[in-house]
Design a protein around this nucleic acid. Sequence first.
DNA 1: ATTGTTAGTTTACATCTGTAACCTGGAACA
DNA 2: TGTTCCAGGTTACAGATGTAAACTAACAAT
Lengths: 147, 147
Amino acid sequence: MIDAKNVTITDSEWEVMRAIWTMGQATSRELIDAMHELKGWSDSTTKTLLHRLIKKNAVEQTGDSRPYTFKPVVGEKESMSAAADDLFDHMCAMRAGSTIAQVIKTRELSKSDIAELQQILAEKAKDAPEMVQCNCLPGKMTCEEDS
Amino acid sequence: MIDAKNVTITDSEWEVMRAIWTMGQATSRELIDAMHELKGWSDSTTKTLLHRLIKKNAVEQTGDSRPYTFKPVVGEKESMSAAADDLFDHMCAMRAGSTIAQVIKTRELSKSDIAELQQILAEKAKDAPEMVQCNCLPGKMTCEEDS
DNA sequence: ATTGTTAGTTTACATCTGTAACCTGGAACA
DNA sequence: TGTTCCAGGTTACAGATGTAAACTAACAAT
């Protein structure tokens, strides 16, 4: 699995990736059917997305005979982390905490997920700063609003 | 502050919003200078983005005399939550936990941020499911890969 | 009144995205 | 051995996005 960092997967492409990741690998027919089922897309749409993903090196086409096999080149976890990082990189550092809080509140998490998060937090608490600085503007070191 | 849900703020626009949110409100000149400083953008670029944001109802222009004042219509926190939600909505539910874990590891969090997260997690742990199901494909109830 | 300066508005334009039709070469069938 | 079908490839096309030039209306200085 290659670094998902440099590959930008768009929303539609992301849908295809989810299918590929979940199936592990698949033929275009299987993917086309899955996408038709899931999103109502026409065959062409899935084909196009698949090609763009191949071009981006997110998916590879293997096999010698005609119904080729498509499989992921980038890992799901890495891609998800990259996407999340990308999101937080564009937000005010000062607000990351409350955003994460909101996400945790909203998402369904398993007992072990929660245990892992608690573990990480406990560790992180040891040398956590009293407060995180706003990094939106130079000079400006804090955001006014705060609700 | 209006619902940030329906407004899609693009990456570049997001940069402008950060400046506006941080400044609370500002004249176009101040914003143009800030963006020039931060991103090296030409005046026009910031102007265009400002206008698009106004059209999207993310920013409003107030004042009667010439140097008008621009101020946010959507809140920062709401927008950030909306963006985060949007991201997680497109990812496999089963992987949300590990993604959040990765984010927490990477980001800087203050002591109080951590305390809040721990608080939320403790509460959530009470009735957490043993495991979260993959929601990528119909039928398919779990993702194979798992690293 | 005339002119320059700046805030605000329109227009531009290449690339990216979402979505899909159409074409082509080989495999399956008649 | 000509016809059909389909996987794979090419082209299309409108709307979004990043980035910015050009134009116009107000205000300030002469």
